[in-house]
Design a protein around this nucleic acid. Structure first.
Length: 699
DNA sequence: AGACCCAGGTTTTTT
DNA sequence: ACCTGGGTCT
């Protein structure tokens, strides 16, 4: 140990290599459960302790705030709180936001720009489509939004242009659903200029504008290159082309780049992640060292063998051997059930059974499914069986209408040009300001390049606002003029001010007026109170709290709910999608809906994305430490129709000796299965009832 | 402005 | 089945 760092103790040889290999580009291929986070954190500690760099000269990038938080905690445990806090450890987006808060004026934005969330982006696109004849009727805003985001993450507008030229060159070759590509450049351009006019950036802009900044201002880039002697990227298989380009620029000087990831766990291709980044690493960074962390510390031999066998069917991958020294464990159980209801009921009974036999806690179990709507049956069954549970996913806190209302007020106060936010609050609560007034003001602003609030004031002064709107406009302007300086000068508490603002607009009364029931209004009011609490929490934690600081944090932290969910996860069964399960582990994992159409999903089959679906199934399997139960339904309620299902192809890829198949469904249904589509027509109810009756025998 | 009705769509999610 | 969004009527 004489000359090695104390931070390599207790590591296996591969992990040690990864920690010690600090110079030059390194790819750490970290199989599931191979102690990846441990390697990254110890590597940072090693660099600091060997004085290879100051903590502030190390940049570690993750994808989620949660991952960043956990990593910071673990680094702090190793090198102390003070040094730990100096390491630049953040998500791609928050790192880029910091860069832009300093330099955005080079790109023609004002320093007080706001971030347009998904809701804002949607609103802008809707308005863009309204201005274009005939587009709104044929296409939904969502399709454009998704496509624009993809293009911006891919390589900027150039990619859109190329797609469209292809489409125009061969109009007949374009599938009907791709016809909207023709509209894309126009809409994309209008969307971008609307954002620019609003002095706002969407999430993709945060990244691509940093790239632009660095490319147009090499001296700014040089400062960052010089500062960050060591750069690490977690979950590298999830990076998109823009993120790849950012990393590439940043490390061009020192070339001390360490990326960590697992190509077999790349499940975000549909949102722009490019597996080639990890597959081609040594081509992109010459002289790269590749270190494989193959030892799995999580799962039994059975589970790992099953997962390995499944993933071996993929062609596009780096072959890596993963192994475990843990014991054999119990065979995987494969439950064949009648339908989705039966699936959930059997799962509940089976769960209780396993919990008792293994003296496990509810929190040791997770139910994983492909799509969120599958949670419903489990929620009902678990409630009936008195099994505590938490559903992860669904609507995010900051996307709820009442929360967005309050945030929109704050955004307008922070950035008077923020048009989507402005339009959201100008007549909320009702002030008699309708379309007529807004159109007039909008034109005025466009003519003179004024922020909305200024335009509103001018319109009022010039008598362009008439009738009931006049009073309302005056009231609204008074609100802005009063609160803007008070929020800006920082003499009063932020949370207090927000509370006062909410009072002033009589928001509680507004909720009571617009809600279906008083109870519903109460729930929504709780969310408003939660916003104020979030402001308070931010004020406590930030060194120098500002309104912008809070808005930035809440934009980039849409999962403010997360901590409360994490708390509840400690007491109950976790219900979530396979995607959200990535990075987590549970002693007992139930995988629901192992059928063609769900895993792999029918749309992925159509798009030819089978390998990604297989990786998703692999992720699901490798979440389990002790035991997996697979559920397969013979028929399933899809969009209100009962449909016969076929077994997921992935189940046949698991060696038979690792599986214990049990048929719980009614015999006649199993027989009907032999010829799935030609089976004699049978009233749906009958088979359902049969399945239910049989369900009681389960477990 | 708000209630009501019909049509369409429906994977995965973070920032 | 269920939710959203848009259009229409009061």
């Amino acid at each position: 140990m004489a000359q090695t760092s104390k931070y390599i103790q207790g590591l296996n040889p591969a992990q040690r290599d990864a920690v010690l290999q600090t110079g030059g580009p390194v790819l750490v291929l970290a199989g599931a459960g191979s102690g990846k986070t441990r390697v990254v954190t110890q590597r940072i500690a090693h660099i600091v302790s060997k004085k290879l760099a100051e903590p502030s000269e190390i940049l570690a990038v993750t994808f989620t705030n949660k991952a960043a938080g956990e990593m910071r905690e673990r680094v702090s445990k190793l090198i102390g709180k003070k040094l730990g806090s100096e390491v630049v450890l953040s998500t791609f987006h928050s790192f880029c936001l910091q860069v832009l808060r300093q330099h955005i004026e080079h790109l023609g934005f004002r320093k007080n720009f706001t971030i347009a969330g998904e809701g804002d982006a949607h609103t802008i696109i809707r308005r863009v489509l309204d201005d274009l004849d005939g587009v709104r009727e044929s296409f939904s805003p969502g399709a454009f939004r998704a496509q624009i985001s993809l293009a911006k993450g891919a390589n900027g507008p150039a990619d859109i242009a190329r797609d469209v030229t292809d489409a125009e060159a061969d109009p007949d070759g374009v599938a009907l659903q791709d016809k909207y590509l023709v509209w894309l450049p126009e809409i994309s351009e209008r969307y971008q200029s609307a954002l620019r006019a609003a002095n706002a950036l969407d999430f993709d802009d945060l990244l691509s504008y940093v790239l632009k900044l660095w490319d147009e201002h090499p001296r700014i880039l040089a400062r960052y290159q010089k500062r960050f002697k060591y750069v690490m990227v977690d979950e590298y298989q999830d990076t998109n082309p823009v993120q790849y380009a950012l990393v590439r620029r940043l490390v061009a000087k020192h070339e001390n780049l360490c990326v960590v990831g697992d190509d077999d766990q790349s499940v975000y291709g549909w949102r722009g992640a490019d597996v080639r980044n990890i597959l081609d690493f040594e081509k992109d960074f010459s002289g790269a060292k590749i270190i494989t962390l193959g030892q799995n510390y999580r799962s039994t031999k059975t589970i790992l063998a099953a997962a390995n066998a499944v993933i071996a069917h993929n062609k596009e991958r780096r072959i890596k051997k993963t192994f475990t020294q843990l014991k054999e464990g119990r065979a995987i159980d494969w439950m064949v059930v009648g339908d989705d209801e039966h699936e959930a009921k059997l799962a509940a009974a089976w769960l209780k059974n396993v919990r008792e036999k293994a003296t496990a806690r509810y929190s040791d179990f997770a139910v994983l499914y492909r799509s969120n709507n599958q949670s419903r049956a489990f929620e009902i069954a678990f409630r009936n069986a008195q099994i505590p549970y938490v559903v992860i996913g669904g609507q995010e806190f900051f996307e709820r209408a009442e929360v967005r209302d309050i945030i929109a007020y704050l955004k307008v106060l922070a950035n008077p040009r923020d048009e989507p936010s402005f339009l959201r609050v100008v007549n909320m609560p009702r002030r008699g300001i309708g379309d007529k007034t807004l159109h007039a003001v909008h034109d005025l602003c466009r003519e003179q390049g004024l922020p909305f609030a200024k335009g509103l004031a001018l319109a009022l002064k010039e008598g362009r606002v008439s009738g009931p709107a006049e009073h309302g406009v005056g009231e609204f302007l008074a609100l802005l003029t009063e609160f803007r300086p008070r929020l800006r000068d920082g003499r009063e508490g932020l949370a207090d001010l927000v509370g006062e603002l909410v009072q002033r607009i009589a928001y509680k009364a507004e909720l009571e007026r617009t809600s279906k029931s008083l109870e519903h209004a109460g729930l929504r009011w709780e969310n408003v109170e939660a916003v104020i609490q979030a402001v308070e929490a931010y004020e406590q934690s930030a060194a120098n709290p500002t309104l912008h600081g809070f808005l930035d944090e809440s934009s980039l932290n849409s999962d403010a709910d997360r901590s409360s969910k994490d708390e509840r996860r400690k007491t109950g069964v976790t219900l979530m999608t396979m995607h959200s399960a990535k990075g987590l582990e549970f002693p007992f994992v139930f995988i629901a809906g192992c059928e063609e159409g769900l895993v792999p999903h029918e749309r992925s089959v159509r798009d030819g994305a089978i390998e990604e679906e297989r990786r998703l199934f692999y992720v699901a399997l490798t979440r389990a430490k002790r035991h997996i139960t697979l559920f397969e339904a013979l028929s399933r309620n899809r969009h209100g129709r009962e449909k016969m299902c076929e077994t997921s192809r992935f189940l046949s890829e698991i060696p038979e000796n690792l599986i214990n198949k049990r048929i719980h469904a009614a015999k006649d249904m199993v027989e009907a299965r032999v010829q799935p589509n030609k089976g004699q027509p049978r009233p749906r109810k009958t088979s359902r009832r049969a399945a239910k009756a049989q369900g009681k025998l389960g477990a």
